[in-house]
């Protein structure tokens, strides 16, 4: 695998994002650190409101204007500081070097343009030098790659099923051959058999193009099967990250990850009752002094309420919790 100076494709450090509404300030990200290597499949998991989508929008600098604001931190992509770039630079980056696919394929396609035209748009924007014939050829090949007959390029979105629309959205995201794909709940709206098809296709495409993927999802099963590495988000921070093997082996985990794993009814489990995580997601309008999970944590200690834990790392598996630290485990 090729390496650039820093090694990582994407490096997010100490990212703070705040949403300002009329009534309150919402602290969405509170010092989030994340590294994505080239060609890696990273799963970003967490509940609604944890900050998963905010992170993706921050990377692309697509936070809602005047409402969402990056207040601190840095985002480096291929060694370059994205937060300092001009809007023109970002336009050249979006869809070309970093692409994003959204949860709902129905609303991310233009209903009055054929799907072929919509895929072509990306090439028109980012590869104006190519001949028309070359561009059309690429669109046709891309459609075939995602499993849609090229002859259907002249059809409109409403003529496709949900699974096929999502394939088209993926085709749009990949035609610029980006190094990084942000996939925000790409299969959540789909049925399991179609989900399996889409995930398999995404794996195949990743092998082919070497694209790194950040898969944003609340489905731990999807992450366990599709990803190499997992990052668990809670309260706007990564509370645990490591390889899929490290996180799902049920050895050492952050209490929140443990809680998440305890909530899912597993296919093979005999448990009569599920063990939900007590309480609700912490109020994002107040910044807690200590750990944001403290109020819901069964193993909460004195220090958890007063001091923010530092990540404790061993062999690439890092957990942000006072239970783990040097000399313990």
């Amino acid at each position: 695998m090729e390496m650039d100076r820093s090694g990582a494709l994407l490096e997010v450090e100490g990212l703070h994002v705040r949403y300002k509404t009329k009534s309150a300030e919402v602290y969405a990200l509170n010092g989030l650190d994340l590294r994505v290597e080239r060609g890696e499949k990273l799963g970003l998991v967490g509940e609604t409101g944890a900050g998963k989508t905010t992170l993706a929008l921050s990377i692309l600098r697509l936070l809602p204007e005047r409402v969402g604001e990056i207040t601190a931190g840095s985002i480096r992509y291929e060694g370059e500081q994205l937060l300092e770039q001009s809007e023109a630079y970002m336009l050249g980056l979006r869809g070309r070097r970093i692409s994003m696919i959204f949860q709902d394929p129905m609303t991310s396609l233009n209903p009055i343009k054929t799907v072929g035209e919509q895929i072509l748009e990306v090439l028109d924007l980012h590869f104006p030098g190519l001949s028309k014939a070359e561009k059309l050829g690429r669109v046709a090949r891309m459609l075939e790659t995602v499993g849609i007959p090229a002859s259907r390029g002249g059809d409109f979105p409403y003529q496709f099923s949900g699974g096929m629309k999502q394939r088209i959205v993926i085709a749009m995201a990949l035609i610029g051959e980006p190094e990084l794909l942000l996939a925000d709940e790409p299969t959540t709206a789909l049925d399991v058999t179609i989900q399996a098809q889409i995930l398999e296709m995404m794996s195949r495409l990743r092998e082919e193009y070497g694209t790194a993927v950040i898969l944003i999802t609340h489905d731990l099963g999807v992450v366990a099967e599709f990803c190499d590495r997992v990052a668990v988000v809670y309260g706007g921070r990564i509370v645990e990250q490591g390889s899929v093997e490290q996180v799902f082996a049920r050895g050492m985990n952050h209490p929140y990850t443990e809680g998440l794993l305890g909530c899912i009814p597993e296919l093979d489990s005999r448990a009569e009752r599920l063990t939900p995580i007590p309480g609700q997601m912490a109020d994002p309008t107040v910044q807690p002094k200590g750990c944001s999970f403290a109020e819901r944590c069964g193993r909460c200690m004195e220090i958890c309420r007063t001091r923010q834990p530092e990540p404790f790392e061993s062999e690439g598996h890092s957990i942000m919790c006072h239970l783990y630290g040097p000399g313990e485990v």
Binding site: Q195, A196, E225, L267
Partner: peptide, 22 residues
């Protein structure tokens, strides 16, 4: 049944009965 994603790592490489079409 085989399409359900699971966090059980021992089932990771299992034989899947993939369906084609919709």
């Amino acid at each position: 049944l085989s399409a359900i994603p699971t966090t059980d790592l021992s089932r990771r490489g299992r034989q899947r009965h993939m369906l084609s079409g919709e």
